[in-house]
Design a protein around this nucleic acid. Structure first.
Lengths: 155, 155
DNA sequence: CCCAAGTATTTCAAGCTTGAAAATTCTGGC
DNA sequence: GCCAGAATTTTCAAGCTTGAAATACTTGGG
């Protein structure tokens, strides 16, 4: 749509590529630091944290397939992560009434406590990482990026 | 804009957490789409692409340890990726004069051609993904995020 | 010259990730 | 009731990732 003028278009694509590289850099640096922190200070991993965060939102449990689509990862992936959380006593599977194919994954009481602690520290830590930004700047970026990750903003 | 009128009561930490989740969402969605594209249309992977991009910047070759610190991944990681690229004829290792511990990794002519093609398509594709943003918006986000991923902006 | 300490890389075990295939269970048309 | 096809989950092979240990080589002090 409206590619029209062959002069004005060129700089925009370069700017967008730079923006992509910057987005990648900020998130991967922050994510790498987060993984390190989870590992060193809490003996866990980011995928485990993500799964626990999802399970925490569904106290009554969530089906494995719903969990994988919620997290946008493959079915086989969550199977392995929930397996490991279960082995550590943080999660469990419960049968679904009336459908023996499905199982609900949920946190154990121990898992819920562990997650609550993690979540609190997580929020404070992220705040520290992004602390250089004012609330207004954060809102500005949020508003602009909302037009990129547009499809299916389901939360 | 200014959707934040009634969000003024929200603490800045919540806004920053939302921003983090948004950044994560945009980059991981884009990255997932990129991985899919590389795999389905080009039979390769993002790590391979990243390594090839790094090697393309050093036509004379780069030491394995320099490669891993450039990409900010572990040594063992690049060993495996370069192994696979080598097996496919896209990269090779050459001995370093005067230090038999080191090796220089570099693209083969075939690897260089393959990368050049990939890079061209990559830039156009990214532009399409972020096409919803004006150049001004992209610049705004870039300026703000530059204050987060501050350390060592090497490109 | 010898060897201890340092440097460069690879190997390894464990976990994450994917898509495809397999196993299990359900459902609806007959 | 039977069974073909659909739905749900697990299993699997291959690759990515890390940090630690192992391997190979270099350097400098004695």
């Amino acid at each position: 749509m409206t590619p029209g003028a062959d002069r004005a278009v060129e700089p925009a694509s370069k700017t967008r590529l730079r923006l992509w590289l910057k987005l990648l850099k900020v998130t991967s640096q922050t994510e790498a630091a987060l993984r390190r922190r989870l590992r060193d200070d809490h003996g866990t991993t980011l995928p485990r944290f993500d799964v626990m965060a999802a399970l925490a939102r569904y106290p009554k449990g969530i089906k494995m397939s719903e969990l994988s689509s919620y997290l946008r990862v493959s079915n086989g992936n969550v199977t392995g992560i929930v397996d490991r959380l279960t082995k550590e006593g943080l999660a469990l599977r419960v049968a679904v009434e009336g459908d023996r194919r499905s199982q609900l994954a949920r946190l154990t009481p121990m898992g819920a406590v562990a997650f609550k602690d993690l979540a609190t520290r997580h929020e404070a830590w992220i705040d520290g990482q992004l602390g250089g930004l004012s609330e207004e700047e954060a809102e500005t970026v949020l508003a602009i990026l909302s037009r990129v990750g547009d499809a299916g903003d389901d939360q």
